[in-house]
């Protein structure tokens, strides 16, 4: 169960969002509604002015208690819009990065399972510069999963792809639901959200306009 109650002043508006939920929560809304900022607040990349963020009973941020867990200790996987693969590492090294940084033991079964799920087997020796947009995004998802996060944030993971690539990635995102990993899915595309999310939080102008099931989208 993820609980978020945050305030943050932004150049154009004030973000003031409160919501909670389990499973896959979609942050849905027009561009500029504060979706990505909320994702960054949860991951610890941006600091709220005040508020509280917790996963179950584990507090990540609480301005009243002066708790602010740094991003590298939050164990929140983040898939960015543009992949953000490390250009100086092979795909295999990119995938292994989170495990190395967290000092985790090798888990060959988990590795093999995720590589198979995302069809990364024939990409492992390549450099990110030689991948297509869709391949890059699949590697980014695998890299985040292999860091063994307790929550996965996906910020418009399909936004930089053309229609054909989107159709290529969507099935993989649906497979993610089988991982039973809590997810935050940021998007302004109702059809995407419908396919991956359990709950929808609709943001507008930095505020929660509505929250509920996927029926909110129609």
């Amino acid at each position: 169960m993820l609980t978020v109650a945050v305030k943050r002043a932004l150049p154009n508006f004030a973000l003031d969002a409160t919501f909670s939920g389990a499973g896959t929560i979609a942050l849905f809304g027009p561009s500029g509604s504060g979706k990505t900022t909320v994702a960054n607040l949860i991951a610890g990349l941006v600091k709220p002015d005040s508020g509280r963020i917790a996963i179950d009973s584990d507090v990540l941020f609480d301005s009243a208690q002066r708790i602010d867990v740094p991003a590298h200790k939050r164990r929140i996987g983040y898939v960015f819009q543009e992949g953000r693969l490390f250009p100086h590492m092979s795909v295999a090294r990119n995938l292994d990065y989170g495990r190395r940084m967290n000092g985790l033991a090798r888990d060959d079964n988990d590795h093999a399972r995720i590589v198979a799920m995302l069809d990364l087997g024939n990409l492992l020796t390549r450099r990110p510069g030689k991948l297509s947009g869709g391949e890059r995004q699949r590697v980014a998802i695998g890299r985040a999963l292999l860091s063994k996060p307790r929550l996965l944030v996906l910020d418009e993971p399909l936004a930089s792809l053309d229609a054909a690539r989107k159709a290529e990635i969507l099935p993989y995102l649906e497979r993610l639901r089988a991982e039973k990993l809590p997810m935050i899915y940021v998007s302004h595309q109702p059809d995407e959200v419908r396919r991956v999310a359990d709950h929808v939080v609709r943001l507008d102008g930095g505020r929660v306009a509505a929250a509920g099931g996927v029926e909110l989208l129609s």
Partner: peptide, 25 residues
């Protein structure tokens, strides 16, 4: 700098981000 943020979310402390991403790049 987005690459450094990505490394950070993957569990790299600021020093490790510097040594594994910023300096090699």
């Amino acid at each position: 700098r987005k690459l450094e943020d990505a490394a950070w979310t993957l569990g790299a402390s600021p020093l490790k981000v510097f040594l594994t991403v910023s300096l090699p790049l």
